[in-house]
């Protein structure tokens, strides 16, 4: 039955065969729900754990991207399924303490997927990155374009891995001129259902801020991010794109609009405080992330607007409001 179906699909020239890795991730799970019933696509899902929301027409492959020699296995899957396009979403949404594991998953995992993609000569490769890779530096221009060097503090293992992934993808792009390589760099993702280090930072009523610093902030709504991935699958957009929401606000105003009380602490004290909390598992991020509360790191979404015709449907206030609304329900235990 499965074989027959597969062959049927292979015969149809207008059906794109897409592999999505990391379907349990926030973007992966939402994206696959959106496009599962689209007749234009035939999708296979890859992750370490089978999600319960998968439709019957989606084939699932249990693959651990960090295993040795897994690249050949993935290439085998791609070949047998006739995969033409790969959407790589198997990334961590928040930093974890064990930097070895995160390095294995993010860098080595991506390397394996890239090896397999090169082996089957995919037509398209879509990958998720983040605008945090530019880093928060005092010398940043107000708007960081896609050409800006990736200057995130190398002490941040989480971002060091992300930057390494970007370099791997660039090499892949040079090696595979036939492939459309889309790198999407969304800024801080916020919304009613997404869970990452930012939403857990915003969950508490008292928010740590750095005394004397008030950078400009931007968010992108989760719906927009899912949408832009859908668009990237639908059409071909070669290159790197910053994905940002509409509007910017000073961090202090963000807190006030969210009804939070900022607790300003001098940077050196905050640094040692957060490093203690991080080692006690009480902080969602290591102290090196505090730079993102000191300096402005706004990404410029002009390129995505011009080429992908992507324009966020949500202003920064809408995004905050939707997050806060669900936050209130969560506090009352009305939603999970």
């Amino acid at each position: 039955m499965g074989n027959k179906k597969k062959n049927n699909v292979k015969d149809k020239p207008n059906v794109k065969r897409i592999a999505i890795t990391g379907v349990n991730s926030f973007i992966g799970s939402n994206l696959i729900r959106r496009i599962a019933n689209d007749p234009r696509y035939q999708i296979i899902a890859i992750d370490t754990r089978k999600p319960d929301f998968l439709e019957k027409n989606i084939k699932f492959f249990k693959v651990d991207l960090t295993e040795p020699m897994i690249d050949a296995a993935i290439a085998g899957i791609f070949k047998s399924e006739g995969i033409e396009e790969v959407v790589h979403l198997a990334f961590l949404s928040s930093p974890i303490k064990d930097t070895t594991i995160s390095h294995e998953l993010e860098v080595i995992g991506t390397l394996n997927v890239l090896h397999a993609s090169t082996a089957v000569k995919v037509k398209k490769f879509v990958i998720r990155s983040t605008s945090m890779v530019y880093g928060a530096n005092a010398t940043n221009p107000n708007f960081l374009t896609e050409e800006h060097p990736l200057m995130a503090d190398p002490r941040m293992a989480y971002l060091r891995d992300k930057i390494e992934v970007e370099h791997l993808v660039r090499r892949f792009r040079d090696k595979n001129p036939q492939a459309v390589v889309t790198v999407l760099r969304p800024c801080a993702i916020m919304g009613p259902t997404v869970k990452n280090f930012l939403t857990s930072y915003f969950a508490s009523p008292l928010i740590l801020t750095i005394l004397g610093f008030d950078p400009l902030f931007q968010f992108v709504h989760e719906e927009d991010v899912i949408d832009v991935f859908r668009v990237a699958i639908e059409d071909n957009y070669h290159g790197i794109f910053n994905i940002v929401g509409r509007g910017i606000l000073p961090f202090s105003t963000v807190l006030k609009l969210a009804g939070k009380v900022g607790v300003p602490i001098p940077y050196p004290i905050a640094y040692s405080m957060v490093s203690m909390l991080w080692s006690a598992n009480l902080s969602p991020v290591p102290p090196t992330f505090l730079n993102f509360l000191k300096y402005t790191w706004l990404a410029d979404g002009a390129k995505a607007k011009k080429i992908m015709k992507f324009e966020s449907r949500y202003t920064i206030k809408d995004t905050l409001e939707s997050f806060m609304g669900s936050q209130r329900l969560r506090e009352l235990r009305l939603v999970e």
Partner: peptide, 17 residues
């Protein structure tokens, strides 16, 4: 832009790096 308070004052009053 490295100086606390000075940087946010400058940004709010319209200075640009």
């Amino acid at each position: 832009y490295y100086m606390p308070f000075v940087n946010s004052f400058l940004i709010r009053t319209g200075s640009v790096r």
